[in-house]
Design a protein around this nucleic acid. Structure first.
Lengths: 298, 298
DNA sequence: CGAAATATGGAATATTTGTTTCAGAAAATA
DNA sequence: TATTTTCTGAAACAAATATTCCATATTTCG
């Protein structure tokens, strides 16, 4: 009933993987043969422990399932399930990296001082940048740039949360001398405006869940003439993705229910530059391409 | 017993996550409501699907466990277990991918130019966040929040590069139910608008070098009545800093001559939340403060 | 060496988890 | 609107999984 080694050593069950490894390393020589064998296997194959069942892990480690339960209890855990949860948490935090740091920040923000509030949003911004960089499909981005580089006029569609992004792009395109129109008139003629776009134009539509109906309607109106639409959105299920010739995924991390915009803004800055570069490339063809816009600064 | 949609579409169950997402995206509109809901949740929270149980996932997605089984079958899988294995495989490969991703990063940008372009802007965004976090003076930020929390109406001033920031703040304040006016009328009455602000109002002025004269003029006009101005700017020498009751420094890093906006946007998201929290705090005084706006999401 | 304590394997058990079923609700169709 | 079909939620069911138990083997210590 008691757990001889662990409680004798006075150590509580570690809730973090690295601490668990340390505990195993320390108590390894004191452990009985089969338990040591199981422990060695566990720290050597953490992913399998996280995803497997007691039976499958036991088979791979060449021990009995009951040995795994005993090992867990010897280390101070309630049972195998408890032991396994450490491995699962590790996998989770590994996958999202900043995810658990954020979570901890959210839990730890007791006084909710404005400093920790800022810290939380900064962490969310970093997490967004990470996942953006990880999930970015270069070919899709490149394709989007091509589409826009060939357009006569670029229409920029985005409402609500996505509006700062298109506003930023409008500024970028303007600075770089590319014709872009920000679809944000105050008197409700936007749908008509985009409906009059020609086939040689293109549009960038930004929208995130919950997708602003107005922006979706504008994107629909735009595509009706057959002109290509490039979307910046947060999921393959987005209505914008369905309308787009190609699209780039930007899934922002949230803090306290407020989503970051860091990844989206970064893309909003990069896209005009990439389009300008592409145009230079096809125009000058091998000449000193990066000069015409390198003097444009913001 | 049959799986109407999937087998009718002739599609076999995808064994890879990306294909699964594509399938969900394609068949989404044909799926019944609850199934679509579950599918949307699954592609949006792949990690949780990988590690959770049918019951826990169902609870998070707000459907019945049986709905998950039905979804899996509709998509052509044998059952939930089969469906889940796709998510688990993804997690496994992601975890092992992590190592060589890092390696690739160290080798230097061998990929296409557009990829390295994005990489550069992401790096600039990270650097901006770092320096922002390091240089942030908590007392100044806190002071700015106080000023805004006491204001009746908050005017938002910003042009050109700073405009996305004030646009973002306008959205945030609106979502949180705080009265804020974005000074961006298209017909040139902005200076008059801010000149009519009262002493019990406040303004946020964003401006970065080279400081847009229009924004500076508006900030000047606003302060003339004695109302407090809060500035977000990049240097103590900024004209905005001179006009402001207090100000926060945001010095962005640039890549290829294009400055990031990540730090500024992060502040633009945090500021409204902080102001709302401060108001809650002084209004409810010790009660459950974080509830009123915790339900507001974007 | 012999006795006590501990560890082990394998099977029995209890629990959890996935799956199926079915009555009623909702939607589609005529 | 009436009728059929499809979908949904809740609970019953079946399968799997973790855990416990116990007889036997192994080690430890007097």
């Amino acid at each position: 009933m008691t757990d001889p080694l662990a409680s004798a050593a006075g150590a509580l069950a570690p809730r973090e993987f690295s601490a668990l490894v340390a505990l195993v390393a320390a108590s390894r020589h004191r452990l009985p043969k089969r338990l040591a064998q199981a422990a060695a296997y566990a720290v050597a194959h953490p992913d399998e422990v996280a995803l497997g069942t007691a039976a499958s892990i036991a088979a791979s480690a060449e021990v009995q399932p009951s040995t795994l339960v005993r090992l867990a209890q010897h280390l101070g855990y309630q049972g195998f399930t408890d032991f396994q949860s450490v491995f699962r948490d590790r996998l989770k935090s590994r996958a999202s990296d900043y995810g658990d740091r954020l979570r901890r920040l959210g839990e730890g923000a007791t006084g909710s001082s404005s400093e920790s509030l800022i810290g939380g949003f900064v962490a969310a911004a970093r997490a967004s940048l990470d996942s953006f960089e990880n999930s970015l499909q270069a070919d899709k981005f490149s394709n989007c740039v091509n589409i826009l580089a060939e357009a006569e006029t670029i229409y920029l569609i985005g409402r609500r949360r996505a509006y700062p992004l298109v506003a930023c792009m409008a500024y970028g395109f303007a600075k770089l001398g590319l014709r872009a129109i920000l679809v944000d008139s105050a008197n409700g003629i936007d749908t008509e405006t985009v409906a009059m776009a020609g086939r040689s134009d293109a549009a960038v539509a930004c929208s995130f869940s919950p997708y602003a109906p107005e922006a979706v309607a504008q994107a629909e109106a735009f595509t009706r003439n057959g002109a290509p639409l490039v979307a910046i959105t947060d999921s393959a299920l987005s209505p914008m993705a369905a309308l787009a010739a190609d699209w780039v995924e930007v899934a922002e991390t949230d803090f306290a229910g407020f989503r970051s915009l860091a990844a989206g803004m970064t893309l909003a800055i990069a896209l005009p530059v990439a389009v300008a570069e592409r145009r230079q490339l096809s125009a000058v063809r091998g000449g000193e391409m990066a000069t015409a816009f390198s003097r444009a600064r913001w």
